[in-house]
Nucleic acid binder design. Structure first.
Length: 797
DNA sequence: TACGAGTTCTCTATG
DNA sequence: AGAACTCGTA
């Protein structure tokens, strides 16, 4: 940081002198005119509308470097927020590289959440918290809510805790505290939402805990109620940069506006066409309204794309053009040539996975006259994570290496969470949620009854569960095996806690500590060894060693990895802090693999070869999205399609299947409406190579493009008959009495005798959205789209 | 209290 | 299809 001490010289420098200095800055020459404009407009509000692949991160990082180089700010005076840890890391890395030194001094470059944790630790007392509060993850949150719901005598069957969690999350995204909850929300969660919200917040306070939503909300509350605190930070953060501004929710928006309220030196970067997080509270309105919020804002559009071929860009533009209310941007490139976007229909999800697997292998080895690509140059982007399984199954069986990005994350795994609960309990013995998690894991004969007694003892004495358990034992409220085991657990926990403390006090002394648990002469126990000791002595490791289920071995390996991860940290609490915010699962693995991930996880990434499977109505666009948010939902889905296509640099392949298993039930699918929106001039329709011996691919395809009635020809192939036979068996062997609410859809009711073009006559046995479940007289149980059904009686004879 | 069979619910996505 | 959860039995 000392290299910036003479930076004051710039403060008084004339514009001309500054311009001179700027000319000497080589990094500016690497920018195109628009990027350069965005970088050089240092003061006042700036909105950078950056389309996909237009060098947004480059502009953003260069801007930071420019701020530093011109002496406008020191590294610790720049507030730069991103949404993901990955983006933050990337930016840190790039700034560091450009500055030619490690930029240790950018402490305020991070995610909204990590920055808010830092701030909240400093001002925790202003919202009645202690600065060492714990951060609950979704799992803890749900368990806590479940307790409250049950305590309030609500049937959590009818009103699941997850739903309440969703409602509360929604409120927190809007920065609505229990006190300023709008009246319009009174009905939420059967009218009990607001009261439960209040109870939840009180309970969090008692536990000295916050959830993710609180991090932002508490800071907004603090800034609003304590002007002195706000002013302090307004002065300190003299320049603010925001990445992915289109993804900000109301709380984040308020937070930013408060912080930028003085100098207004705020630069927001975003792309309204890539706003795909409306479901978690993001407000596209924030970016659309920027110029109103910050009058005199400088708006820069980055439209030159450096990533994709013209065909890919044209396809993406064609799709996104269907959306209304865009800020308006058109990507262009001076790159020429390239392959058209490829489109192919398949029989079912399995066939689709198989075809993509073969295609990947062909591209890998460059056979069929195609260029050869490494596996890590290829990615499969799906709408919903359950689509991944078909690919994993297939790739496992053909031995194609793949990597799932953003799947079940390391720190969310059962064994990791259990182990972490032990660590948490040692660091903060009053962590009741952690205690509940591990009292009986491994089995200690402490079931519901015993746990209830512990709860009771704790509540009566107004102490945390661990103390409550002690009291219970002293009062002989528990006897036998349970009592012995509980005593041992408590003793262990205390001993381990003492070992951490001994470590802290005597750190660096190299002295031998005898705190009762360790033999004299043993070397000092560091947190890594301690973690291992805890896992071993608690019997947790043993539990998995004795477990003969197939995944037990993997779990043990994960535990080893967890202990190894501790090496990067000074102590246990530092580690816990990290984990609560960084849920990344970036096991850096250099080997070449195909990436499989959701479209959401793919935002910000790019690959030479991209596969976009599952483009079927209901799956993509997702039915749920459209049901819940109507036109808005559909537009968000369309943006998702846009994001997907624009991930591709050279080859983009879109596919759909005519049949797919959903919830274990076969369903016929229609090609996505987005397929109709692809401009034909930029699309190459592929024919499936002789699978099932038919040319259904071609037939289905053209039908897909022109009429979307792909069903017709598909159903005459041998594969279809085989499928039908399987369906028959399925329904015979396991008669499914899937009795769904006897709700009428627009025209048909349960029990109606109906007619379907292809399947013939049948009776409606279930209704699921716009789909009807029909027991066909010939074809068996099928789910079909309601509009393809006519009442049997409607047919004129 | 532990375990296994049966039943119901899920499948958007993030820190 | 698989996970999560419930309930009855040993």
């Amino acid at each position: 940081m000392s290299s910036f001490d003479d930076s004051d010289a710039y403060e008084g420098a004339s514009l001309a002198a500054r311009a001179m200095a700027a000319r000497a800055m080589p990094y500016l020459d690497e920018l195109n005119p628009e990027q350069r404009a965005a970088v050089e407009a240092l003061d006042g509000p700036v909105l950078m509308l950056a389309g996909a692949g237009t060098g947004k991160t480059k502009a953003l990082t260069t801007r930071i470097v420019h701020l530093l180089n011109t002496g406008r700010a020191r590294p610790n005076e720049i507030l730069a927020v991103t949404f993901t840890n990955k983006a933050a890391r990337e930016m840190k890395h790039r700034v560091g590289r450009m500055m030619g030194e490690a930029v240790e001094g950018m402490p305020w470059l991070g995610t909204f959440h990590s920055i808010c944790v830092k701030l909240l630790r400093r001002h925790a007392e202003l919202v009645e918290l202690n600065s060492n509060f714990t951060i609950l993850d979704t799992d803890d949150q749900i368990r806590l809510l479940k307790q409250l719901i049950r305590a309030a005598n609500i049937d959590d069957k009818r009103w699941p805790a997850r739903a309440l969690a969703g409602v509360i999350d929604h409120w927190k995204n809007r920065a609505w505290t229990p006190d300023n909850l709008p009246a319009s929300e009174a009905h939420a969660y059967d009218g009990k939402g607001p009261a439960l919200y209040r109870m939840y917040q009180t309970r969090l306070c008692e536990l000295n805990a916050v959830d993710f939503g609180d991090l932002l909300m508490h800071m907004v509350t603090i800034f609003q109620a304590h002007d002195d605190v706000l002013k302090q930070y307004q002065r300190w953060f003299c320049y603010i940069l925001v990445d992915e501004y289109q993804d900000t929710n109301v709380a984040q928006y308020l937070w930013l506006r408060l912080l930028a309220g003085g100098h207004q030196n705020i630069c927001c970067v975003g792309d309204d066409d890539q706003s795909i997080y409306g479901w978690r509270g993001a407000e596209v309105g924030n970016i659309l309204r920027f110029e109103k919020d910050f009058p005199g804002a400088h708006v820069v559009r980055l439209e030159q794309n450096y990533r994709s071929t013209a065909h890919i860009l044209a396809a993406a533009s064609g799709v996104i053009a269907g959306n209304k209310g865009r800020l308006g941007k058109e990507l262009w490139t001076d790159a020429e040539g390239g392959e058209k976007v490829r489109l192919i229909g398949h029989w079912d999800g399995e066939t689709e996975a198989r075809w993509i697997g073969e295609e990947i292998e062909a591209m890998q080895y460059g056979t069929r006259g195609l260029q050869s690509y490494g596996l890590d140059k290829m990615a499969i982007l799906v709408r919903a994570s359950h689509q991944m399984r078909a690919f994993e199954d297939r790739f496992l069986s053909i031995g194609l290496p793949y990597r799932v990005i953003g799947g079940p994350r390391f720190y969310e795994r059962l064994e990791i969470r259990d182990a972490m609960a032990y660590f948490r309990l040692v660091v903060s013995p009053s962590d009741d949620l952690a205690f509940e998690r591990i009292v009986n894991t491994p089995k200690r004969g402490l079931g519901d009854k015993a746990q209830q007694k512990i709860q009771m003892a704790a509540r009566e004495n107004g102490v945390p569960l661990m103390q409550g358990a002690r009291i219970l034992l002293q009062n002989k409220g528990l006897t036998g095996k349970g009592a012995t085991e509980l005593t041992r657990l408590l003793d262990n926990l205390e001993r381990w806690a003492m070992m951490t403390r001994a470590r802290v006090i005597d750190a660096g002394e190299g002295e031998v500590i005898d705190d009762g648990g360790i033999e004299v002469g043993e070397p000092e126990v560091n947190h890594i060894e301690l973690a291992q000791i805890m896992l071993d002595e608690s019997g947790y490791t043993e539990m998995w060693q004795n477990d003969k289920s197939p995944d037990a071995q993997g779990r043990l390996e994960n535990l080893k990895e967890l202990v190894k991860a501790l090496e990067q940290f000074e102590n246990l609490s530092g580690f816990l802090e990290h984990v609560s915010l960084i849920m990344d699962n970036n096991s850096e693995d250099a080997s070449e693999k195909v990436s499989i991930m959701t479209l959401h996880a793919a935002k910000g990434l790019e690959f030479p070869v991209v596969f976009l499977p599952g483009w079927e109505d209901g799956l993509f666009p997702s039915q749920r999205s459209m049901d819940e948010s109507g036109q808005t939902g559909l537009e968000e889905e369309r943006r998702l399609a846009y994001v997907g296509i624009t991930r591709a640099e050279e080859v983009c392949t879109i596919s759909f299947a005519g049949n797919r298993q959903v919830f274990g039930q076969w369903q016929s699918q229609l090609p996505s409406r987005f397929i109709d929106e692809l401009p034909e001039a930029h699309v190459d329709v592929l024919t499936a190579p002789g699978l099932y011996g038919g040319n259904y691919g071609a037939a289905g395809m053209s039908a897909g493009i022109e009429t979307r009635a792909a069903e017709a020809d598909v159903y005459s192939s041998p594969g279809w008959r085989r499928m039908q036979a399987r369906n028959q068996q399925r329904t015979v062997s396991k008669p499914k009495t899937n009795v769904i609410d006897v709700q009428a859809t627009s025209a048909h009711t349960m029990g109606d005798r109906v007619f379907h073009q292809k399947f013939g006559y049948g009776a409606i046995v279930g209704v699921d959205g716009d789909k009807l479940e029909i027991e066909f007289e010939k074809a068996g149980l099928k789910k079909v789209i309601a509009k393809f059904i006519t009442g049997a009686d409607d047919i004129p004879f």
